[in-house]
Write a protein that binds this DNA or RNA. Structure first.
Lengths: 166, 166
DNA sequence: GCGAATTGTTTTAAGTTTAAAATATATAGA
DNA sequence: TCTATATATTTTAAACTTAAAACAATTCGC
């Protein structure tokens, strides 16, 4: 089932840029939906919550709301709601930052750390499973080209902030 | 600003699969957020609505709710709400399918077609701009590798439906 | 120090999204 | 036919997400 997807019906003369973009969306959606569903079924949690815990776990220290917002590439208000729910579950806790009373530090609880570590290994297996057909060389080359794309996006797409100087 | 992103803090010994996945998420988020913001600023519309119109425009004919759901890779209920809002804006209209009274056909109105076509060219320019640093060979290779990834995902991630046979 | 601009977070309103249940119609088998 | 099963869509409740406004605290320039 679901042979069709985002790419279906792309005209044969669309630019290569658009075709790359549509295929990237397809891959993202397929993997994203798969991970989301497994987190729901196996751990009764959601991908955004997993992502917050992953950032905190990798940092190994509390992060501010704003830093989480930047790393997850979502708005501040979004993070507020996510942390509310994670705190209600007992997986993280808020602490006032000692040096700046505007800031909130978000720290994982022991329970949150244990919960994330229980998921993390399986999560990596899911990803490895889905990328299993690609050999090491293909993975490296894909990684390299995505790095090129990332740099291209970051250097190109900032021509709109032209009124910042006044 | 926003030098940090989803990838920051990846341990140096994480598998290459995970690193590819994180970088793919980063590229997707960067481009997705950029397109979303431009659609909002320039056309006062949203990416999901653009996506629905794009599918209808490419098909060149009405699509059922279910077919839209499959192509956009979102749930049926999601499409119901999207079509409600697009219909309220006068950009699409619902029609009962002639042969099957369960089905709803969704057709673009003339207004919807004109609106999409006004956006489509600029949309392609946005994508081309963001991918501008990659030459034709890199784009082709990225397209090919994403195709390999897509096939890998589709062939691998279906080992969970083991109770369907009884 | 004081006031203005900046930075960090939350709130608000609207839209998006999912999973699950409900509804309606069609199809297949006894 | 009649009933069970399957398919197509909508509804529901909760969560996610954004943009914009509001609020709070800091920093900067005088």
């Amino acid at each position: 089932m679901s042979r069709d997807d985002y790419e279906s019906g792309v005209g044969r003369d669309d630019g290569m840029e658009l075709r790359v973009w549509l295929r990237l969306i397809t891959c993202h959606n397929l993997m994203d939906n798969n991970v989301r569903q497994k987190l729901h079924q196996d751990y009764e949690t959601t991908l955004p919550r997993f992502d917050v815990l992953a950032q905190l776990h990798r940092e190994g220290a509390p992060l501010t709301m704003g830093e989480l917002s930047r790393r997850l590439m979502v708005t501040n208000g979004n993070v507020t709601g996510l942390i509310d729910r994670l705190a209600r579950e007992g997986l993280v806790e808020r602490r006032p930052a000692p040096d700046d009373r505007r800031r909130q530090l978000v720290a994982m609880t022991d329970q949150g750390k244990a919960f994330f570590e229980a998921m993390a290994g399986e999560h990596q297996d899911w990803i490895a499973g889905m990328t299993g057909d690609l050999n090491a060389g293909e993975l490296r080359e894909l990684f390299r080209l995505l790095g090129r794309l990332k740099q291209s996006i970051l250097t190109t797409h900032d021509e709109d902030n032209s009124e910042a100087a006044e």
